[in-house]
Design a binder for these strands. Sequence first.
DNA 1: CGCAATCTGTGATTGCGTGCACAATGTAGC
DNA 2: GCTACATTGTGCACGCAATCACAGATTGCG
Lengths: 211, 211
Amino acid sequence: MALEIPEVVIDRLPIYTRALALLQRQGRNVVNSQELGGRLGVTPAQIRKDLSYFGRFGKQGRGYNVKRLLEELHQILGITREWSMVLVGVGQLGRAILGYDGFAPQGFRIVAAFDVDPDIVGDMVNGLEVKSVAQLQDEMPDLDAQIAIVAVPAANAQEVIDALVECGVKAILNYAPIAAHAPPDVRIRDIDPVLGLQSMTFYIKEGGTTS
Amino acid sequence: MALEIPEVVIDRLPIYTRALALLQRQGRNVVNSQELGGRLGVTPAQIRKDLSYFGRFGKQGRGYNVKRLLEELHQILGITREWSMVLVGVGQLGRAILGYDGFAPQGFRIVAAFDVDPDIVGDMVNGLEVKSVAQLQDEMPDLDAQIAIVAVPAANAQEVIDALVECGVKAILNYAPIAAHAPPDVRIRDIDPVLGLQSMTFYIKEGGTTS
DNA sequence: CGCAATCTGTGATTGCGTGCACAATGTAGC
DNA sequence: GCTACATTGTGCACGCAATCACAGATTGCG
Ligand SMILES: NC(=O)c1ccc[n+]([C@@H]2O[C@H](COP(=O)([O-])OP(=O)(O)OC[C@H]3O[C@@H](n4cnc5c(N)ncnc54)[C@H](O)[C@@H]3O)[C@@H](O)[C@H]2O)c1
Ligand SMILES: NC(=O)c1ccc[n+]([C@@H]2O[C@H](COP(=O)([O-])OP(=O)(O)OC[C@H]3O[C@@H](n4cnc5c(N)ncnc54)[C@H](O)[C@@H]3O)[C@@H](O)[C@H]2O)c1
Protein backbone atom coordinates (compact mmCIF):
# COMPACT_ATOMS: atom_id res chain seq x y z
CA MET A 1 0.00 0.00 0.00
CA ALA A 2 2.36 2.71 1.23
CA LEU A 3 3.98 3.84 -2.00
CA GLU A 4 7.72 3.98 -1.72
CA ILE A 5 8.97 5.34 1.54
CA PRO A 6 12.11 7.48 1.17
CA GLU A 7 15.21 5.94 2.66
CA VAL A 8 15.99 9.12 4.60
CA VAL A 9 12.74 8.64 6.45
CA ILE A 10 13.67 5.11 7.44
CA ASP A 11 17.03 6.36 8.62
CA ARG A 12 15.38 8.84 10.96
CA LEU A 13 13.04 6.36 12.61
CA PRO A 14 15.72 4.78 14.80
CA ILE A 15 16.59 8.25 16.10
CA TYR A 16 13.00 8.78 17.08
CA THR A 17 12.99 5.36 18.69
CA ARG A 18 16.07 6.17 20.73
CA ALA A 19 14.64 9.46 21.96
CA LEU A 20 11.28 7.89 22.82
CA ALA A 21 12.97 5.12 24.77
CA LEU A 22 14.77 7.75 26.81
CA LEU A 23 11.54 9.64 27.43
CA GLN A 24 9.91 6.42 28.55
CA ARG A 25 12.73 5.70 31.02
CA GLN A 26 12.21 9.21 32.34
CA GLY A 27 8.59 8.35 33.04
CA ARG A 28 7.03 10.52 30.38
CA ASN A 29 3.71 9.33 28.96
CA VAL A 30 3.06 11.89 26.26
CA VAL A 31 5.20 13.99 23.96
CA ASN A 32 4.40 16.33 21.10
CA SER A 33 6.26 16.74 17.85
CA GLN A 34 7.67 20.07 18.94
CA GLU A 35 9.45 18.79 22.01
CA LEU A 36 10.64 15.65 20.27
CA GLY A 37 11.95 17.77 17.43
CA GLY A 38 13.69 20.09 19.82
CA ARG A 39 15.56 17.24 21.44
CA LEU A 40 16.65 15.80 18.11
CA GLY A 41 17.32 18.93 16.13
CA VAL A 42 14.56 18.08 13.70
CA THR A 43 11.56 20.14 12.56
CA PRO A 44 8.26 19.18 14.21
CA ALA A 45 6.68 19.04 10.77
CA GLN A 46 9.34 16.61 9.65
CA ILE A 47 8.51 14.21 12.44
CA ARG A 48 4.80 14.36 11.75
CA LYS A 49 5.35 13.90 8.04
CA ASP A 50 7.66 10.95 8.60
CA LEU A 51 5.19 9.21 10.88
CA SER A 52 2.29 9.89 8.53
CA TYR A 53 3.83 7.49 6.02
CA PHE A 54 2.89 4.66 8.34
CA GLY A 55 -0.32 5.69 10.02
CA ARG A 56 -1.90 8.09 12.45
CA PHE A 57 -0.36 7.61 15.84
CA GLY A 58 -0.96 10.95 17.52
CA LYS A 59 -3.91 12.69 19.07
CA GLN A 60 -4.76 16.24 18.14
CA GLY A 61 -4.43 18.60 21.04
CA ARG A 62 -2.37 16.06 22.99
CA GLY A 63 0.57 14.71 21.11
CA TYR A 64 1.88 11.17 20.98
CA ASN A 65 1.60 8.47 23.61
CA VAL A 66 5.22 7.52 24.19
CA LYS A 67 4.66 3.83 24.83
CA ARG A 68 2.26 3.45 21.92
CA LEU A 69 4.47 5.27 19.43
CA LEU A 70 7.52 3.33 20.54
CA GLU A 71 5.69 0.06 19.95
CA GLU A 72 4.55 1.21 16.53
CA LEU A 73 8.08 2.18 15.53
CA HIS A 74 9.39 -1.16 16.72
CA GLN A 75 6.78 -2.82 14.55
CA ILE A 76 7.64 -0.68 11.54
CA LEU A 77 11.38 -1.20 11.83
CA GLY A 78 11.00 -4.90 12.49
CA ILE A 79 12.68 -4.82 15.87
CA THR A 80 10.01 -6.55 17.89
CA ARG A 81 11.81 -9.84 17.37
CA GLU A 82 15.37 -10.70 18.25
CA TRP A 83 17.95 -10.64 15.46
CA SER A 84 20.89 -12.98 15.31
CA MET A 85 24.15 -11.68 13.91
CA VAL A 86 27.53 -13.14 13.05
CA LEU A 87 30.82 -11.31 13.45
CA VAL A 88 33.73 -11.79 11.08
CA GLY A 89 37.11 -10.53 12.26
CA VAL A 90 37.95 -10.92 15.93
CA GLY A 91 40.76 -8.39 16.21
CA GLN A 92 40.92 -5.33 18.38
CA LEU A 93 37.68 -3.87 17.07
CA GLY A 94 35.95 -7.25 16.87
CA ARG A 95 36.60 -7.85 20.56
CA ALA A 96 35.24 -4.43 21.49
CA ILE A 97 32.14 -5.22 19.48
CA LEU A 98 31.73 -8.61 21.16
CA GLY A 99 32.04 -6.92 24.54
CA TYR A 100 29.67 -4.11 23.70
CA ASP A 101 26.57 -4.22 25.86
CA GLY A 102 24.57 -1.92 23.64
CA PHE A 103 23.37 -4.50 21.13
CA ALA A 104 21.53 -6.94 23.37
CA PRO A 105 19.06 -4.43 24.88
CA GLN A 106 18.00 -3.55 21.35
CA GLY A 107 17.45 -7.15 20.40
CA PHE A 108 20.64 -7.74 18.45
CA ARG A 109 22.63 -10.78 19.48
CA ILE A 110 25.95 -12.00 18.16
CA VAL A 111 25.63 -15.76 17.89
CA ALA A 112 28.94 -16.62 16.25
CA ALA A 113 32.35 -15.10 15.60
CA PHE A 114 34.77 -16.05 12.83
CA ASP A 115 38.41 -15.29 12.16
CA VAL A 116 41.07 -16.55 9.78
CA ASP A 117 44.01 -16.45 12.17
CA PRO A 118 44.72 -19.93 13.62
CA ASP A 119 46.06 -18.30 16.79
CA ILE A 120 42.69 -16.70 17.36
CA VAL A 121 40.42 -19.52 16.24
CA GLY A 122 39.41 -21.49 19.30
CA ASP A 123 39.69 -18.54 21.67
CA MET A 124 36.79 -17.89 23.98
CA VAL A 125 35.71 -14.27 23.71
CA ASN A 126 32.76 -13.11 25.75
CA GLY A 127 31.44 -16.62 26.08
CA LEU A 128 31.75 -17.29 22.38
CA GLU A 129 34.21 -19.64 20.75
CA VAL A 130 35.90 -18.11 17.74
CA LYS A 131 35.47 -20.34 14.70
CA SER A 132 37.48 -20.58 11.53
CA VAL A 133 36.19 -18.51 8.69
CA ALA A 134 36.74 -21.59 6.53
CA GLN A 135 33.71 -23.09 8.25
CA LEU A 136 31.51 -20.13 7.45
CA GLN A 137 29.58 -21.91 4.70
CA ASP A 138 29.05 -24.93 6.93
CA GLU A 139 27.99 -23.12 10.06
CA MET A 140 25.74 -20.42 8.66
CA PRO A 141 22.69 -22.56 7.81
CA ASP A 142 22.31 -23.55 11.46
CA LEU A 143 22.72 -20.05 12.82
CA ASP A 144 19.75 -18.42 11.12
CA ALA A 145 21.55 -15.09 11.04
CA GLN A 146 20.54 -12.61 8.37
CA ILE A 147 22.84 -9.89 9.67
CA ALA A 148 26.64 -9.82 9.72
CA ILE A 149 29.23 -7.48 11.17
CA VAL A 150 32.48 -7.18 9.23
CA ALA A 151 35.57 -6.14 11.20
CA VAL A 152 38.43 -7.43 9.09
CA PRO A 153 41.21 -5.39 7.44
CA ALA A 154 40.23 -3.42 4.34
CA ALA A 155 42.17 -5.72 2.05
CA ASN A 156 40.04 -8.72 3.02
CA ALA A 157 36.68 -7.06 3.52
CA GLN A 158 35.23 -7.49 0.04
CA GLU A 159 35.97 -11.20 -0.10
CA VAL A 160 34.43 -11.65 3.34
CA ILE A 161 31.36 -9.73 2.23
CA ASP A 162 31.08 -11.86 -0.90
CA ALA A 163 31.23 -15.00 1.22
CA LEU A 164 28.58 -13.69 3.59
CA VAL A 165 26.29 -12.78 0.71
CA GLU A 166 26.81 -16.28 -0.63
CA CYS A 167 25.61 -17.60 2.72
CA GLY A 168 22.37 -15.65 2.46
CA VAL A 169 23.16 -12.72 4.71
CA LYS A 170 20.82 -9.82 3.94
CA ALA A 171 22.31 -6.96 5.97
CA ILE A 172 25.91 -6.07 6.66
CA LEU A 173 27.42 -3.64 9.11
CA ASN A 174 30.81 -2.93 7.60
CA TYR A 175 33.62 -1.36 9.61
CA ALA A 176 36.28 -1.73 6.93
CA PRO A 177 37.20 1.49 5.14
CA ILE A 178 36.23 0.41 1.65
CA ALA A 179 33.40 1.03 -0.80
CA ALA A 180 31.83 -2.37 -0.51
CA HIS A 181 29.79 -3.99 -3.26
CA ALA A 182 26.81 -6.27 -2.79
CA PRO A 183 23.65 -7.26 -4.67
CA PRO A 184 20.76 -4.80 -4.41
CA ASP A 185 18.82 -7.05 -2.06
CA VAL A 186 21.63 -6.91 0.50
CA ARG A 187 21.78 -3.78 2.62
CA ILE A 188 25.13 -2.40 3.72
CA ARG A 189 25.85 0.27 6.31
CA ASP A 190 29.39 1.52 6.59
CA ILE A 191 30.98 2.81 9.74
CA ASP A 192 34.19 4.74 9.22
CA PRO A 193 35.24 7.28 11.81
CA VAL A 194 37.92 8.69 9.53
CA LEU A 195 35.34 9.85 6.99
CA GLY A 196 33.59 11.76 9.73
CA LEU A 197 36.82 13.39 10.84
CA GLN A 198 37.83 14.31 7.31
CA SER A 199 34.56 16.05 6.60
CA MET A 200 34.68 17.97 9.86
CA THR A 201 38.14 19.33 9.21
CA PHE A 202 36.79 21.08 6.14
CA TYR A 203 34.75 23.32 8.39
CA ILE A 204 37.28 23.95 11.13
CA LYS A 205 40.42 24.23 9.05
CA GLU A 206 40.47 28.00 9.43
CA GLY A 207 38.21 29.89 11.81
CA GLY A 208 35.70 29.15 9.08
CA THR A 209 32.50 31.19 9.00
CA THR A 210 30.58 28.39 7.36
CA SER A 211 27.46 28.11 9.48
CA MET B 1 33.83 33.30 -3.77
CA ALA B 2 32.49 29.75 -3.76
CA LEU B 3 28.84 30.31 -2.88
CA GLU B 4 27.77 27.93 -0.18
CA ILE B 5 28.87 24.41 -0.79
CA PRO B 6 26.23 21.82 0.16
CA GLU B 7 27.13 19.67 3.15
CA VAL B 8 26.35 16.48 1.23
CA VAL B 9 29.10 17.39 -1.19
CA ILE B 10 31.63 17.79 1.61
CA ASP B 11 30.56 14.45 3.01
CA ARG B 12 31.34 12.75 -0.29
CA LEU B 13 34.82 14.18 -0.71
CA PRO B 14 36.44 11.86 1.85
CA ILE B 15 34.99 8.91 -0.06
CA TYR B 16 36.62 10.15 -3.23
CA THR B 17 39.84 10.66 -1.32
CA ARG B 18 39.77 7.12 -0.03
CA ALA B 19 39.17 5.65 -3.48
CA LEU B 20 41.87 7.79 -5.06
CA ALA B 21 44.39 6.78 -2.42
CA LEU B 22 43.66 3.15 -3.24
CA LEU B 23 44.08 3.80 -6.97
CA GLN B 24 47.37 5.49 -6.26
CA ARG B 25 48.62 2.52 -4.27
CA GLN B 26 47.63 0.36 -7.21
CA GLY B 27 49.88 2.46 -9.41
CA ARG B 28 47.19 4.16 -11.42
CA ASN B 29 48.01 7.61 -12.78
CA VAL B 30 44.74 8.62 -14.38
CA VAL B 31 41.09 7.88 -13.71
CA ASN B 32 37.90 9.16 -15.24
CA SER B 33 34.68 10.00 -13.51
CA GLN B 34 32.97 6.92 -14.87
CA GLU B 35 35.37 4.43 -13.36
CA LEU B 36 35.60 6.31 -10.09
CA GLY B 37 31.83 6.42 -9.93
CA GLY B 38 31.59 2.73 -10.68
CA ARG B 39 33.83 1.88 -7.77
CA LEU B 40 31.91 4.08 -5.37
CA GLY B 41 28.35 3.55 -6.52
CA VAL B 42 28.06 7.19 -7.50
CA THR B 43 27.03 8.78 -10.79
CA PRO B 44 29.90 10.10 -12.89
CA ALA B 45 28.04 13.38 -13.27
CA GLN B 46 27.77 13.64 -9.52
CA ILE B 47 31.51 13.40 -9.11
CA ARG B 48 32.21 15.98 -11.79
CA LYS B 49 29.61 18.34 -10.34
CA ASP B 50 31.00 17.95 -6.83
CA LEU B 51 34.53 18.69 -7.94
CA SER B 52 33.42 21.65 -10.04
CA TYR B 53 32.53 23.49 -6.83
CA PHE B 54 36.22 23.81 -6.12
CA GLY B 55 37.91 24.14 -9.49
CA ARG B 56 38.75 22.37 -12.69
CA PHE B 57 40.98 19.43 -11.96
CA GLY B 58 40.37 17.16 -14.94
CA LYS B 59 41.41 17.11 -18.55
CA GLN B 60 38.87 16.63 -21.30
CA GLY B 61 39.39 13.44 -23.18
CA ARG B 62 41.65 12.07 -20.44
CA GLY B 63 40.17 12.17 -16.99
CA TYR B 64 41.78 13.11 -13.70
CA ASN B 65 45.40 12.79 -12.66
CA VAL B 66 45.15 10.67 -9.53
CA LYS B 67 48.03 12.27 -7.64
CA ARG B 68 46.98 15.78 -8.53
CA LEU B 69 43.32 15.30 -7.60
CA LEU B 70 44.25 13.62 -4.34
CA GLU B 71 46.42 16.60 -3.39
CA GLU B 72 43.65 19.01 -4.28
CA LEU B 73 41.14 17.12 -2.15
CA HIS B 74 43.55 17.07 0.76
CA GLN B 75 43.90 20.81 0.40
CA ILE B 76 40.14 21.32 0.23
CA LEU B 77 39.39 19.13 3.23
CA GLY B 78 42.18 20.61 5.27
CA ILE B 79 44.01 17.33 5.74
CA THR B 80 47.42 18.39 4.55
CA ARG B 81 48.40 19.16 8.12
CA GLU B 82 48.33 16.84 11.09
CA TRP B 83 45.40 17.10 13.48
CA SER B 84 45.69 16.51 17.22
CA MET B 85 42.77 14.89 19.00
CA VAL B 86 41.86 14.10 22.58
CA LEU B 87 39.92 11.03 23.67
CA VAL B 88 37.50 11.06 26.57
CA GLY B 89 36.43 7.70 27.97
CA VAL B 90 39.03 4.95 28.09
CA GLY B 91 36.75 1.94 28.41
CA GLN B 92 36.43 -0.98 26.06
CA LEU B 93 35.73 1.16 23.01
CA GLY B 94 38.20 3.86 24.02
CA ARG B 95 41.01 1.32 24.14
CA ALA B 96 40.10 -0.03 20.72
CA ILE B 97 40.20 3.51 19.39
CA LEU B 98 43.57 4.18 20.98
CA GLY B 99 44.88 1.00 19.42
CA TYR B 100 43.40 1.70 16.03
CA ASP B 101 46.10 2.18 13.42
CA GLY B 102 43.79 3.79 10.89
CA PHE B 103 43.95 7.34 12.23
CA ALA B 104 47.67 8.07 12.05
CA PRO B 105 48.11 7.40 8.31
CA GLN B 106 45.38 9.97 7.66
CA GLY B 107 47.04 12.56 9.85
CA PHE B 108 44.90 12.21 12.94
CA ARG B 109 46.79 11.72 16.17
CA ILE B 110 45.42 11.16 19.65
CA VAL B 111 47.59 13.24 21.96
CA ALA B 112 45.77 12.72 25.26
CA ALA B 113 43.22 10.42 26.85
CA PHE B 114 40.95 11.22 29.80
CA ASP B 115 38.76 9.14 32.07
CA VAL B 116 36.89 9.70 35.32
CA ASP B 117 37.55 6.32 36.89
CA PRO B 118 40.44 6.53 39.40
CA ASP B 119 41.30 2.90 38.65
CA ILE B 120 41.90 3.80 35.03
CA VAL B 121 43.57 7.17 35.48
CA GLY B 122 47.32 6.67 35.44
CA ASP B 123 47.16 3.59 33.22
CA MET B 124 49.44 3.50 30.24
CA VAL B 125 47.44 2.69 27.12
CA ASN B 126 49.23 2.58 23.79
CA GLY B 127 52.02 4.74 25.09
CA LEU B 128 49.64 7.32 26.50
CA GLU B 129 49.04 7.97 30.18
CA VAL B 130 45.35 8.26 30.98
CA LYS B 131 44.64 11.53 32.74
CA SER B 132 41.81 12.53 35.01
CA VAL B 133 38.94 14.24 33.28
CA ALA B 134 39.04 16.73 36.13
CA GLN B 135 42.23 18.07 34.61
CA LEU B 136 40.63 18.58 31.21
CA GLN B 137 40.36 22.35 31.55
CA ASP B 138 43.97 22.59 32.71
CA GLU B 139 45.51 20.32 30.12
CA MET B 140 43.65 21.37 27.00
CA PRO B 141 45.34 24.73 26.39
CA ASP B 142 48.72 23.00 26.04
CA LEU B 143 47.46 20.29 23.72
CA ASP B 144 46.28 22.46 20.85
CA ALA B 145 43.62 19.90 19.95
CA GLN B 146 40.54 21.12 18.13
CA ILE B 147 39.08 17.65 17.73
CA ALA B 148 37.76 15.31 20.42
CA ILE B 149 36.52 11.75 20.47
CA VAL B 150 33.82 10.94 23.01
CA ALA B 151 33.57 7.32 24.16
CA VAL B 152 31.83 7.59 27.51
CA PRO B 153 28.47 6.08 28.53
CA ALA B 154 25.38 7.81 27.14
CA ALA B 155 24.44 9.20 30.53
CA ASN B 156 27.67 11.22 30.75
CA ALA B 157 28.18 12.13 27.13
CA GLN B 158 26.41 15.49 27.07
CA GLU B 159 28.30 16.83 30.08
CA VAL B 160 31.58 15.69 28.57
CA ILE B 161 30.67 17.39 25.30
CA ASP B 162 29.78 20.57 27.15
CA ALA B 163 33.14 20.54 28.90
CA LEU B 164 34.98 19.95 25.63
CA VAL B 165 33.13 22.82 23.97
CA GLU B 166 34.09 24.97 26.92
CA CYS B 167 37.70 24.08 26.24
CA GLY B 168 37.45 25.32 22.67
CA VAL B 169 37.05 22.03 20.84
CA LYS B 170 35.57 22.62 17.38
CA ALA B 171 34.83 19.09 16.16
CA ILE B 172 33.55 16.07 18.05
CA LEU B 173 33.35 12.45 17.03
CA ASN B 174 30.66 11.10 19.32
CA TYR B 175 30.22 7.37 19.93
CA ALA B 176 27.60 7.70 22.65
CA PRO B 177 24.05 6.87 21.54
CA ILE B 178 22.50 10.25 22.27
CA ALA B 179 21.32 13.26 20.32
CA ALA B 180 24.11 15.56 21.36
CA HIS B 181 23.76 19.33 21.50
CA ALA B 182 26.49 21.84 20.77
CA PRO B 183 26.82 25.43 19.51
CA PRO B 184 26.53 25.88 15.75
CA ASP B 185 30.26 26.52 15.36
CA VAL B 186 31.06 23.09 16.77
CA ARG B 187 30.67 20.16 14.37
CA ILE B 188 29.48 16.81 15.65
CA ARG B 189 29.52 13.45 13.90
CA ASP B 190 27.75 10.59 15.58
CA ILE B 191 28.71 6.98 15.24
CA ASP B 192 26.08 4.53 16.40
CA PRO B 193 26.08 1.03 14.96
CA VAL B 194 22.66 0.28 16.43
CA LEU B 195 21.01 2.97 14.31
CA GLY B 196 22.47 1.35 11.22
CA LEU B 197 21.19 -2.05 12.26
CA GLN B 198 17.74 -0.76 13.09
CA SER B 199 17.30 0.89 9.72
CA MET B 200 18.48 -2.22 7.88
CA THR B 201 16.00 -4.47 9.62
CA PHE B 202 13.21 -2.44 8.08
CA TYR B 203 14.21 -3.72 4.67
CA ILE B 204 14.93 -7.32 5.54
CA LYS B 205 12.18 -7.95 8.05
CA GLU B 206 10.19 -9.94 5.50
CA GLY B 207 11.55 -10.95 2.13
CA GLY B 208 10.80 -7.32 1.34
CA THR B 209 10.72 -6.27 -2.30
CA THR B 210 11.85 -2.76 -1.48
CA SER B 211 14.65 -2.15 -3.91
C1' DC C 1 47.28 18.60 -39.79
C1' DG C 2 42.64 17.49 -39.79
C1' DC C 3 39.20 14.32 -38.15
C1' DA C 4 37.19 11.06 -34.93
C1' DA C 5 36.90 9.79 -30.40
C1' DT C 6 36.91 10.75 -25.52
C1' DC C 7 35.74 12.92 -21.37
C1' DT C 8 35.32 17.16 -18.63
C1' DG C 9 32.71 21.22 -16.89
C1' DT C 10 28.36 23.20 -16.45
C1' DG C 11 23.76 25.35 -17.65
C1' DA C 12 19.24 23.40 -17.84
C1' DT C 13 15.90 20.20 -16.19
C1' DT C 14 13.90 16.98 -13.31
C1' DG C 15 12.69 14.98 -9.09
C1' DC C 16 12.24 14.72 -4.40
C1' DG C 17 12.41 15.91 0.31
C1' DT C 18 11.47 19.79 3.55
C1' DG C 19 8.80 23.11 5.63
C1' DC C 20 4.56 25.70 5.68
C1' DA C 21 -0.03 26.57 6.81
C1' DC C 22 -4.42 25.25 7.81
C1' DA C 23 -8.39 22.23 8.26
C1' DA C 24 -9.58 18.46 11.07
C1' DT C 25 -9.89 16.56 15.46
C1' DG C 26 -9.38 15.67 20.03
C1' DT C 27 -8.92 17.74 25.07
C1' DA C 28 -9.93 20.37 29.06
C1' DG C 29 -12.43 23.49 31.64
C1' DC C 30 -16.63 25.28 33.17
C1' DG D 1 -22.55 19.94 26.33
C1' DC D 2 -20.43 23.95 24.71
C1' DT D 3 -16.41 26.83 24.13
C1' DA D 4 -11.51 27.76 23.89
C1' DC D 5 -7.40 25.73 23.04
C1' DA D 6 -3.77 22.69 21.56
C1' DT D 7 -1.70 19.76 18.27
C1' DT D 8 -1.97 16.46 14.68
C1' DG D 9 -2.16 15.07 9.67
C1' DT D 10 -1.50 16.60 5.07
C1' DG D 11 -1.99 19.12 0.44
C1' DC D 12 0.89 22.36 -1.53
C1' DA D 13 4.77 25.28 -2.67
C1' DC D 14 9.43 25.86 -2.40
C1' DG D 15 14.25 24.88 -2.73
C1' DC D 16 17.95 22.17 -3.29
C1' DA D 17 20.35 18.31 -5.04
C1' DA D 18 20.77 14.71 -8.62
C1' DT D 19 20.78 13.90 -13.37
C1' DC D 20 20.82 15.10 -18.11
C1' DA D 21 22.84 16.73 -22.16
C1' DC D 22 25.86 19.24 -24.77
C1' DA D 23 29.54 22.63 -25.81
C1' DG D 24 34.33 22.79 -25.38
C1' DA D 25 38.79 20.94 -24.75
C1' DT D 26 42.24 17.42 -25.30
C1' DT D 27 44.17 13.38 -27.28
C1' DG D 28 45.43 9.95 -30.76
C1' DC D 29 45.67 8.49 -35.22
C1' DG D 30 45.95 8.29 -40.04
N1 LIG E 1 39.94 -0.61 15.86
C1 LIG E 1 39.10 0.39 15.59
O1 LIG E 1 38.79 1.24 16.43
C2 LIG E 1 38.50 0.49 14.25
C3 LIG E 1 37.66 1.54 14.05
C4 LIG E 1 37.06 1.67 12.83
C5 LIG E 1 37.32 0.78 11.84
N2 LIG E 1 38.16 -0.22 12.02
C6 LIG E 1 38.36 -1.18 10.92
O2 LIG E 1 37.95 -2.46 11.36
C7 LIG E 1 38.77 -3.44 10.79
C8 LIG E 1 39.44 -4.23 11.86
O3 LIG E 1 40.21 -3.38 12.68
P1 LIG E 1 41.07 -3.98 13.88
O4 LIG E 1 41.70 -2.83 14.55
O5 LIG E 1 40.21 -4.87 14.69
O6 LIG E 1 42.18 -4.83 13.10
P2 LIG E 1 42.87 -6.18 13.64
O7 LIG E 1 44.00 -6.45 12.72
O8 LIG E 1 43.11 -6.07 15.10
O9 LIG E 1 41.78 -7.30 13.41
C9 LIG E 1 41.44 -7.81 12.16
C10 LIG E 1 41.09 -9.28 12.34
O10 LIG E 1 40.53 -9.79 11.14
C11 LIG E 1 41.06 -11.09 10.92
N3 LIG E 1 40.97 -11.40 9.51
C12 LIG E 1 41.78 -11.03 8.49
N4 LIG E 1 41.36 -11.52 7.34
C13 LIG E 1 40.27 -12.27 7.60
C14 LIG E 1 39.40 -13.03 6.80
N5 LIG E 1 39.53 -13.11 5.48
N6 LIG E 1 38.38 -13.67 7.40
C15 LIG E 1 38.21 -13.57 8.73
N7 LIG E 1 39.00 -12.86 9.54
C16 LIG E 1 40.02 -12.20 8.97
C17 LIG E 1 42.47 -11.02 11.42
O11 LIG E 1 42.93 -12.31 11.75
C18 LIG E 1 42.30 -10.14 12.67
O12 LIG E 1 42.02 -10.91 13.81
C19 LIG E 1 39.75 -2.70 9.90
O13 LIG E 1 39.24 -2.68 8.59
C20 LIG E 1 39.77 -1.33 10.46
O14 LIG E 1 40.10 -0.38 9.50
C21 LIG E 1 38.75 -0.41 13.23
N1 LIG F 1 32.12 -0.89 22.75
C1 LIG F 1 31.60 -0.66 21.54
O1 LIG F 1 31.82 -1.42 20.58
C2 LIG F 1 30.78 0.53 21.30
C3 LIG F 1 30.30 0.70 20.04
C4 LIG F 1 29.54 1.79 19.77
C5 LIG F 1 29.27 2.70 20.75
N2 LIG F 1 29.72 2.54 21.98
C6 LIG F 1 29.43 3.56 22.97
O2 LIG F 1 30.65 4.10 23.43
C7 LIG F 1 30.54 4.44 24.79
C8 LIG F 1 31.57 3.69 25.57
O3 LIG F 1 31.38 2.30 25.43
P1 LIG F 1 32.31 1.27 26.18
O4 LIG F 1 31.88 -0.06 25.77
O5 LIG F 1 33.72 1.67 26.00
O6 LIG F 1 31.89 1.52 27.71
P2 LIG F 1 32.83 1.36 29.00
O7 LIG F 1 31.95 1.41 30.19
O8 LIG F 1 33.75 0.21 28.81
O9 LIG F 1 33.73 2.66 28.99
C9 LIG F 1 33.25 3.93 29.34
C10 LIG F 1 34.38 4.68 30.01
O10 LIG F 1 34.00 6.04 30.20
C11 LIG F 1 34.44 6.45 31.47
N3 LIG F 1 33.64 7.60 31.92
C12 LIG F 1 32.40 7.61 32.44
N4 LIG F 1 32.00 8.86 32.71
C13 LIG F 1 33.01 9.67 32.35
C14 LIG F 1 33.20 11.06 32.39
N5 LIG F 1 32.24 11.89 32.83
N6 LIG F 1 34.36 11.57 31.94
C15 LIG F 1 35.32 10.74 31.49
N7 LIG F 1 35.21 9.41 31.43
C16 LIG F 1 34.05 8.88 31.86
C17 LIG F 1 34.29 5.24 32.34
O11 LIG F 1 35.14 5.35 33.48
C18 LIG F 1 34.72 4.12 31.39
O12 LIG F 1 36.10 3.90 31.46
C19 LIG F 1 29.12 4.10 25.19
O13 LIG F 1 28.33 5.26 25.09
C20 LIG F 1 28.70 3.09 24.19
O14 LIG F 1 27.31 3.11 24.00
C21 LIG F 1 30.50 1.47 22.28
